[in-house]
Amino acid sequence: MTAQVTVLYFAKSAELSGLKEEELVAVPTPISSQGLWSLLLQRHPRLCVLQHQVVLAVRQQYVAIGDELVALGDGDEVAVVPPLSGG
């Protein structure tokens, strides 16, 4: 199974990828959060400077990068979330 998802890039990840958002048409699902991150790294190798200091958000829920399996559906939003600095 694959899904079409929208990937959102924020803060430093937007600068590194040169994008605010993009559509990925055939992301395998289910996929581990590590697998999803690796896929984004392949597309944008400069994101590797965020390695170990980044999490993802899938449908607006934080997901640490690791073995956890994520089920994706068409139209889902995935965000790259560098360290937060609100306030």
Partner: peptide
């Protein structure tokens, strides 16, 4: 909690 969890960034 706001500083730890709210998805907001500053440069």
């Amino acid at each position: 909690q706001l500083k730890a969890r709210l998805p907001v960034w500053k440069k």
